[in-house]
Design a protein around this nucleic acid. Sequence first.
DNA 1: CAAACGATTTTCT
DNA 2: GAAAATCGTTTGG
Length: 209
Amino acid sequence: MSISNPSNRILPPSFYIRADVVQIARELLGMVLVTCIDGILTAGLITETEAYAGAIDKASHAYGNRRTARTEPMFSKGGISYVYLCYGLHHLFNIVTGPEHIPHAVLIRAISPLDGLEDVLLRRNKTILTPTLSSGPGSMSAAMGIKRNHTAMSLQGPLLWIEDRSLQPEDADIISGTRVGVAYAAEDALLPFRFWIKGNAFVSKAKGL
DNA sequence: CAAACGATTTTCT
DNA sequence: GAAAATCGTTTGG
């Protein structure tokens, strides 16, 4: 399978540096996440995202501008990754957005495989394509080969980048709801900061309005 | 320095 | 549906 000159389809830094993280989370639906890790190129269509609005968002690791070694990448200029270990065994991949010092990020919760399916199956120790292959933030990262050491990495490549292949859903096919696993965030858990593509099989089964 | 805790997934009953 | 798996980060003493 050939990838036709993707260079001019890579989302530029200007896409990420904008201020509205919720809008960016929405626009990322239908974009294509590409990784070239250990020399293996794989790609998937982004089907589910969640916005984390840093300083003012109780669900964010950077709530109240809490700055630690782990959260440091979120305070950088938009356009890099933020990957951290969750529950001791899952690597969760985020896209840092906004200008420098504004710790906004978008969690990529699910993708639908596009390129390199054979390698994706190997990474997940599976033999057939099913939604569980890459639906859910932990399994998505595993499918794409993303690990914690890929944090604070440029989204202009050469290991990670996002392409616009003109596959965005219609506005009517974008659904929003509450974020998953953030009950501790009190009233902010009710914010409609989760987005997914209507009817897509590759959306996590976790509950959310 | 010790202890608790996840932006979850998989397996077992 | 319940419970285990599993460990870096953060917080408290």
